[in-house]
Simulated assay, not measured.
Amino acid sequence: MREQETVSSGQMAVLFYVFMIGSSVIALPGPVIGFAKNGAWLSLILTAGFGTVLLYCTLYLYNKHPDLTFVEYSQKTVGTWVTAILVVPFLTVATESSMGIIQHMGIFLKTSMMRETPLYVFHAFIYITIAMTLRAGIEVMARLFFLLTVFMVLFILTVLLLATPEYHPAYMLPFLPQGFKPVLHGVYATVGFPYAELIFFTMLLPFVRQAEIGNLPKKMYVALWASTMSMVFVTVSTIMTFGPIAGERKYSVFEIARIIEVQEIIQRIESLIGISLILGSYMKATLSMYVLNIGLSRLLRLSDDRLLIFPLALIHMLASIISVESDNKWVEIVHSVVPLWFFVGAVIPLLILTAVTVVKTSRRRNNS
């Protein structure tokens, strides 16, 4: 790790917030409402409780190994061979995350805004931008992403506030008409995307300045629940706008923006949401690929963390050409396969390392 590459605890919390909402604040509410109906907001809150447990484990391991990434303290705790078994699935999760986000963004742009443009055009531009951002380093990313996050949140908030005349609170009822089972389905659908992905920050927390470690846990928990409340706000707004057909709106905020009309002066402002999705997807995919790059560099013991950036970007771009192009198929993969994949590939390795660390720490105490 290069010594000069450090960020403040506040900057890390902002990175965590934008990583959690990223593209999910726009793309997630519609499918979750389709699964959980009017209880979708409850599904998000319950999954956030699961995310809080994962964040606690992440911060616990960081507290025990503040200078080491997930790969490094895994090697220290369970050895090289076991680390390979744990880290390879973890890196496949990071790969799917970085590729999937851009794939989703490309499908959105192609189906909603620029239907005649091939997907590889979107992917080529975004991967070139991501690679250049990664070359700049995490300090530049932290400063840039703060500004972009402000714009993204303002755009989404503006649309939701302008849409208030279209809200019908009666659409929130009946609550749980089919019982609690749909809510649990919504929980399963959101476990992988975005909550299991917070484990990626086991690779990023060591970049926080040592003097600010004490302030980090509180800010990370605030960021987690702020992102959850942001998604809950969007979900509730979608339900109150579209009622029984809310679950059919894949990009709910985009659909809300399309119906806004204020005195024939303010209308057709869905471009703001298009910009927000591009910004959120770009930032989240950049962080995911940064985790993948750092993880591979540490696993292969490379002296230069930047060596793999352009090869990874090229591989991702080529893979995107032959990947899924159907929006419905992609939604099915994200909410049926991804939760199980991410749980096995990311959550289980984290829990194993946490348990081993707890046992070793307890034994040291007993011996001393």
Score class of each variant (00 low, 15 high):
residue 360 K to Q: 14
residue 315 I to D: 05
residue 67 D to V: 13
residue 124 A to Y: 06
residue 287 L to H: 04
residue 240 M to Q: 11
residue 152 M to Y: 02
residue 12 M to E: 05
residue 237 S to C: 11
residue 303 S to A: 13
residue 49 G to K: 12
residue 177 P to R: 00
residue 320 S to I: 14
residue 252 S to A: 15
residue 108 F to A: 11
residue 95 T to C: 10
residue 221 Y to M: 02
residue 153 V to C: 00
residue 65 H to S: 15
residue 268 R to S: 12
residue 29 P to H: 08
residue 184 L to I: 15
residue 217 P to Y: 05
residue 184 L to E: 10
residue 39 G to R: 14
residue 159 V to K: 03
residue 224 L to N: 11
residue 295 G to K: 06
residue 128 I to R: 01
residue 363 R to I: 08
residue 324 V to T: 15
residue 316 H to Y: 08
residue 299 L to C: 12
residue 300 L to N: 07
residue 294 I to W: 00
residue 287 L to W: 05
residue 147 L to T: 14
residue 352 I to D: 10
residue 355 A to G: 13
residue 348 I to D: 13
residue 50 F to P: 05
residue 90 F to W: 04
residue 205 L to S: 05
residue 74 S to G: 15
residue 197 E to N: 12
residue 357 T to G: 08
residue 220 M to K: 02
residue 278 I to N: 11
residue 242 F to M: 04
residue 6 T to A: 05
residue 317 M to V: 08
residue 151 F to P: 00
residue 364 R to Q: 12
residue 364 R to K: 09
residue 310 F to L: 08
residue 12 M to W: 07
residue 346 A to W: 08
residue 205 L to K: 10
residue 138 I to R: 05
residue 313 A to M: 05
residue 347 V to C: 03
residue 285 A to T: 07
residue 47 T to M: 06
residue 20 M to L: 15
residue 349 P to D: 07
residue 215 N to A: 11
residue 310 F to P: 00
